[in-house]
Amino acid sequence: MSSRLLVRRLGGSVLVVFLASILVALMVHLVPGDAASAVAGENASPEQIQSTRERLGLDEPIWVQYFSWATDALRGDFGQSLITNRPVIEMVRQVLPATLSITLAASVIAVVIGVTLGGLAGLRRGVTDRVTSLGASLGIAMPSFWVGMLLVTFFALEFDLFPVLDYTPLTEDPVGWLHHITLPALALGLGMSAEVARQTRGGVVDVMAQPYIRTARAKGAPGGRLFARHVVRNAAIPVVTVLGLQIGRLLGGVIIIEQVFAINGLGTMAVRAVADRDFPVIQAYVLLTTVIVVAINLLVDLSYGWINPRVRSEE
């Protein structure tokens, strides 16, 4: 991997995060009217509004506001919740494992199901292909919360196989952890797997039509494993791309899933913060998700070079 490539991409990512951080830090000013009174609430006295203004640092010049927010943020200090006064970083730390578990599990499910089904559809064509494509369309159309409710109805209530709510930390009880995240991760991952399946199928169909596949067959390569060798790396790029793009959908979808399964995660925290106009929490949440999305996309970018050697040498 060319290190110039790495440095360039990394630099680009850092720039994006920096620009986002400016927006985040100054987000309070996007509120129409006086931010301080909006945050303090309609019943606040002038003294309360002033103290809110001071808390939010709104009477400092803009660049000072950004600078102090940014330097604090780099140290992990995102201030305190305006509503509960708890340190924001503590709040995030408390809820992050649940959301990460579900999101990662959902990604794994999406990749496994999506790549498998999409690959089969692209290789076999015919009935498998039609059924898979139809299924994928349905999967993309179905809202995740609805899928979640269906899963709960069947697997939790009817068949009592899984719990309905809540999250158990991995460190406390690995079996319980798996038990609790299965349905939420499925609900979240099935929709994504549909998109992955579509892209995989498209990529595989493209590759199968290429002359080098014919060459491989002329060499006597059997359908299964060796085709996997030839097809996978060449079809991988659109699939990896869609995985990277889906991360945004995942982070949004997990909020809804957390509501449906009553899981105390990042999404729950964010929803509350928005409803309560709890700016420090909102800022931390937005920055965190920005960093995650940028990081994932950077990884995707870098992976292209690893997957397709042609890309490497073009740098």
């Binding site: 939790a156 009592d160 719990p163 309905v164 709510l165 809540d166 509501q259 449906v260 009553a262």
Partner: peptide, 16 residues
């Protein structure tokens, strides 16, 4: 548990 559905499910499943 703000979601009505989730809440009643939690009762039916015995978790609440």
């Amino acid at each position: 548990i703000p979601d009505d559905n989730t809440r009643i499910s939690g009762f039916i499943s015995g978790e609440l």
